[in-house]
């Protein structure tokens, strides 16, 4: 049953990868990669139970976080072409400013 679930997840990942390769816009690709990442998290989680090593779940947790950061970084790069342009167009920064 774990194997069947893994195979289904792999099929989904393949579909997401096909969308990422065919585009047509950059945003389609990023969205597909995001979906691929979510499925990777689930695949690792299923694999943890398939192999009986539940400590592997830590990796799934890390992947969930890194996936999100990756999407944010990719979007920022696509939008501005660099990482240092600020998103705060009106210069209204209050919270989150370091003390």
């Amino acid at each position: 049953m774990y194997i069947a679930a893994s195979l289904a997840i792999l099929v989904t990942m393949g579909l997401a990868l096909a969308r990422a390769l065919s585009g047509p816009t950059t945003y389609d690709r990023i969205a597909a990669v995001n979906m691929h990442g979510t499925k990777t998290v689930l695949l690792i989680a299923v694999f943890a139970f398939l192999s009986g090593r539940t400590d592997v779940l830590d990796i799934a947790l890390v992947y969930a976080l890194i996936n999100f950061i990756g999407v944010v970084a990719a979007l920022k790069l696509v939008e501005h072409g660099n990482f240092h342009t600020s998103d705060n167009y009106d210069g209204d920064v209050k919270e989150g400013e370091p003390k």
Binding site: A8, I9, V11, T12, L15, A18, R19, A31, A32, M35
Partner: peptide, 10 residues
Amino acid sequence: LGIVGGIGIH
């Protein structure tokens, strides 16, 4: 359902 979503994006 994952596969359904995968079909959906196509």
